[in-house]
């Protein structure tokens, strides 16, 4: 490269500041569309709102009353447990199945590209579509799943209408939605691993499992970490799927913090915005803690 061409698209100090002209719209947007709704949500959770004061203003300050109400509610314990079970089970299953499929589709065979593309469909469908399809598949009387179980002699399971199975049902549907995402990201990670490494280890006589343990798994770690982190963020947020399939029921058996928060704020004729917002904020804290804890562990492992 000629010495007269600067190595970068050099910008002066003043020029770097004027770059904010391009960032101004998105910064304003962050304030209006993220910071302000979040602030309103915190404010909602710290005041004693009624439908009337919600419209006209003037709700009295209530301190942490709404949080106390939420924590003392008999729904809180189950909602927290269900959130954790739903998140952990979804993540583990999505990642395991996604990894298995990624390894399988990484072998080049005729049609592997096309099939890998088509398998993305569940992830691209609107959640309401997946949720209603699974509702019908898991219908107690007319659902195909119970019909198939009947063929092998298993009694019908009340997937969506018994407290024992409702959480399992929504986990199944959520795993189905998440597998394609895990597959695509992990597959792109696999493609970045140099083929020479495998050839060398094959010459050394390594078995398939040994190659997975000593090459694939360690080299795939950064991509796996990001996949799991994104999965965590998405899964903690899941609300539509559960609400449409079970509304968190029966008897709160599939209620998570997200569906509970929605039900408090919007699901009843008499909205309870204060406690609803309080539960929502607890969910944010949980999401941030999980995200930060995860990032810290990552950093420690890398150093």
């Amino acid at each position: 490269m000629a010495a007269t061409v600067p190595p970068g698209y050099r910008v002066s100090r003043a020029g770097r500041w004027s770059a904010w002209a391009f960032l101004a719209p998105v910064t304003g947007y962050l304030v209006i569309c993220y910071a302000y709704p979040l602030y309103r949500n915190v404010e909602l959770s710290l005041r004693e709102y009624t439908v009337r004061s919600f419209v006209q203003g003037g709700a009295p300050f209530a301190g942490l009353d709404n949080y106390r109400t939420a924590l003392a509610d008999p729904t809180f314990g189950p909602a927290l447990t269900h959130t954790l079970v739903f998140t952990v089970a979804s993540l583990v299953l999505q990642f395991t199945i996604g990894m298995a499929l990624a390894l399988f589709f990484h072998q080049h065979f005729p049609l592997s590209r096309t099939l890998r593309a088509v398998i993305l469909v569940p992830w691209l469908l609107p959640l309401i579509v997946s949720a209603s399809t699974w509702s019908w598949l898991l219908n107690s009387d007319a659902g195909l799943v119970n019909a198939a179980l009947g063929v092998v002699g298993v009694d019908p399971v009340h997937w969506l209408t018994s407290p024992r199975w409702s959480l399992v049902s929504v986990i199944i549907a959520n795993v189905w939605i998440g597998v394609p995402f895990n597959l695509v990201v992990l597959h792109s990670g696999l493609q970045a691993i140099p083929a020479e490494l495998y050839e060398a280890s094959a010459l050394d006589g390594a078995t398939g499992w040994q190659r997975f343990r000593s090459i694939t798994f360690p080299l795939l770690r950064p991509v796996s970490a990001i996949t799991l982190l994104l999965g965590l963020i998405y899964t903690l947020k899941v609300f539509d799927l559960i609400w449409i399939m079970t509304r968190g029921g029966p008897a709160d058996s599939s209620t998570t913090l997200a569906t509970w928060s929605y039900r408090l704020g919007f699901g009843n004729l008499l909205p309870r915005f204060g406690p609803g917002a309080a539960v929502g904020n607890l969910l944010i804290v949980l999401a941030l803690l999980a995200g930060l804890g995860y990032l810290r562990r990552q950093r420690r492992q890398q150093s």
């Binding site: 302000y36 709704p37 309103r40 949500n41 609300f239 704020g265 915005f273 999401a287």
Partner: peptide, 19 residues
């Protein structure tokens, strides 16, 4: 921007609703 993505939609919705 990355952290903004972590905020659950239902919480945003409540804030939007009030505004």
């Amino acid at each position: 921007l990355l952290t903004a993505q972590m905020i659950p939609g239902i919480i945003m919705a409540m804030g939007f609703y009030a505004s």
